[in-house]
Write a protein that binds this DNA or RNA. Structure first.
Lengths: 110, 110
DNA sequence: AAACTATATCGTAATATTGCAATATAATTA
DNA sequence: TAATTATATTGCAATATTACGATATAGTTT
């Protein structure tokens, strides 16, 4: 046991879960917020911003990239990471759709 | 090691990470979507909807509840779970804010 | 009260995640 | 080309997550 039973869920459910999971760590939230704050797509000074060692940050960046939350371009010596706007749009659309459905429901129970 | 260094991040970052982490499993996404689909806040037939054993579903429900994504009311014998609209609103607001900032930025790099 | 129903908790095995030191890779500068 | 700089990968220890059988708890019905 211990393995998520991915095959039993829909592709959409798995996709959202992967995105959410990627955001499910404060270091990765902090990376996203830093990328949003910085004017240009600043590269590896993310390491200096975070209270984690370089390999750890590199690992978190990899996970964000795998999930599609950020993009990374090699820029000479360094790498330029930035937010993938499409994925943010997906998230936004998902929660807006849920909100809409909840409004229509006007549940009276809990 | 293996422990998240929670204390080094802001409260907001940790809070969002907890919410996102709770959604970071397809079974929990499926539970949310089921609660949204069903008209009333139906109780424990969630187990019948999911391809997982009852204790596993109970555990996932607990995690969703701990994170604040759902609420549960005892209703006689059974329990009535339903979506916590406030938390969805938080998520929605967060991604709308990011989208807005991204639009203003109009980054030209990646 | 006894049987039944609905849900939670315990205990445990399998696997995944987190974090980092050490090291590798690859572009840049001296 | 040797040293430097920026980032990734490897390997590993500590911890967390996932899943479920067995069992507990608590309300309901007979």
């Amino acid at each position: 046991m211990g393995v998520t039973k991915t095959e039993h869920f829909t592709e959409e459910q798995n996709e959202l879960a992967i995105l959410a999971k990627a955001l499910g760590h404060p270091a990765r939230v902090a990376i996203m917020e830093y990328l949003l704050k910085v004017e240009a797509c600043i590269c590896g000074d993310i390491v200096n911003e975070l209270p984690l060692a370089q390999p750890t940050v590199s690992q978190h960046l990899k996970e964000l990239k795998n999930a599609g939350l950020i993009k990374g371009n090699i820029e000479g010596n360094a790498i330029c990471y930035c937010i993938n706007e499409n994925t943010i749009a997906k998230f936004k659309a998902y929660f807006e759709a849920i909100s809409l459905k909840l409004d229509k429901k006007k549940s009276t129970c809990c």
